[in-house]
Simulated assay, not measured.
Amino acid sequence: MKLSFYGSSLLSSYWNGAATYYRGLLRDLAGRGYEITFYEPDAFDRQSHRDIDPPDWAAVSVYPATPEAMRAVVAEAAGADVVVKASGVGVFDDELLAGLAAAADPAAVTIFWDVDAPATLAELRADPGHPTHRVLPGLDLVLTYGGGPPVVAAYEGFGARACIPIYNALDPATHHPVPPDPRFSADLAFLGNRLPDREARVDTFFLDAARHLPERAFLIGGSGWESKAMPGNVRHLGHVSTREHNAFNATPLAVLNIARDSMAAVGFSPATRVFEAAGAGACLVTDAWEGLDLFLKEGEEVLVARDGHDVAGHLAALTPERARAVGAAARARIIAEHTYAHRGAGVDAILRDAVARKRAGQAAPARSVA
């Protein structure tokens, strides 16, 4: 089955948090017989920050960020059985979605795959004239990076035929325990780019905790933080490539997950770092959000904090033995229930069912993948 996927980038995780998600899902689908072409624009300096080589499980078409090149790659969708337009490509998003809906073969399944549903839905609520409103009812499926029942209800309210969450997961082949690396030595580490709807929560959960524990070492990785004033016990690394994530997660005493405002409000939206950290056997401390118990059990497989004071409390009480026990329990749970093999099996069933129904003139039913 031929799958054409139009997204931000498969080759680079630079300012591209969906890279690991794309790689895990698409590699698994390739193993299930899909012939995949991933289309990504040469934009945002990502091609000079590649952290994987072009894979053998997908063809990658990097096109210039020009209207002419965009129209040329849209035309190639006509030969696919499944056509996917992801959110957040960053250039010509509206034109890509409308163009692909029109260019796809009438028998092909057309999908909008939203990797930031809270942000997209906020745009749709704020702008009744948004181009996505016109295209959405004609698509066969909306798949989302997360969001659970609130996101499904919102998309169906906007006219989507079916909306199915496909959650993040772990690829054990790429994210796994490794020996500690002194570069990432710390009591608590956080990895995430500086974004407007994340910064206040980083202040609350990470920097406030650092102020509460001036004798402990804190580490922050990700782009954009270099101009941020931080306590003296916080060290900033800048961008951390995906090939270094295992060591980043395996080295500190604990690793912190902080959801963006919109993701925390919607719930059911575990970030990629949750699964990467668990895969590396890290002791994960996370802010609280609805739906967490679908993935990890509080107190046994993850430590949950409501503010920076809670984070500091967890860290002050945490021994290396306790950290290892929590990390091992998280890794066992995620491997048992939340790998990309689990997700890929669900997506494969959804896509094959949707293709069969499309060819038979039937609508795709609503289903969920946890």
Rank of each mutant, 00 (worst) to 15 (best):
S4W: 06
L11Y: 05
S13A: 15
Y22P: 05
D28Y: 07
G31P: 06
G31Q: 05
Y34W: 15
E40R: 11
P41Y: 11
F44H: 11
R46Q: 13
Q47N: 12
Q47V: 05
S48Q: 13
D51P: 03
I52H: 04
I52C: 09
I52M: 14
W57C: 04
V62S: 14
A65Q: 06
P67D: 04
E68Y: 02
A72G: 00
V74C: 08
A75W: 05
V82F: 00
V82E: 03
A86H: 11
G88V: 06
D93I: 14
A104V: 01
A104D: 02
A107P: 00
A108E: 02
V109F: 09
A126D: 15
A126V: 10
P131N: 10
G138L: 00
G148T: 12
P149K: 14
V151N: 08
A154G: 06
Y155K: 05
Y155S: 05
F158S: 04
R161T: 05
Y167L: 07
L170A: 02
L170K: 01
P177A: 09
V178D: 04
P180V: 04
D181F: 12
D181S: 12
D181Q: 09
F190N: 03
L195H: 01
L195M: 01
A200W: 05
R201Y: 09
V202E: 02
L219F: 09
I220L: 14
S223L: 03
S227I: 00
A229I: 15
G232D: 15
N233P: 07
G238K: 04
H239R: 05
E244C: 10
H245Q: 09
A247W: 02
F248L: 15
A250D: 10
A250L: 08
L256K: 14
N257R: 14
R260W: 00
S262K: 09
G267K: 07
T272A: 10
F275H: 02
A278W: 08
A280F: 01
C283H: 07
L284W: 05
L284I: 13
D287L: 06
F295M: 11
E298T: 13
E298M: 03
E301N: 07
E301H: 08
A305I: 01
A305M: 03
D307N: 14
D307G: 08
L315I: 08
L318A: 03
P320Q: 13
R322L: 15
R322C: 12
V326I: 15
V326N: 11
G327M: 05
A328G: 13
A336R: 15
A336P: 07
T339G: 11
A341C: 09
R343G: 02
G344C: 10
V347K: 09
V347E: 08
A349I: 03
R352H: 12
A363P: 13
A366F: 00
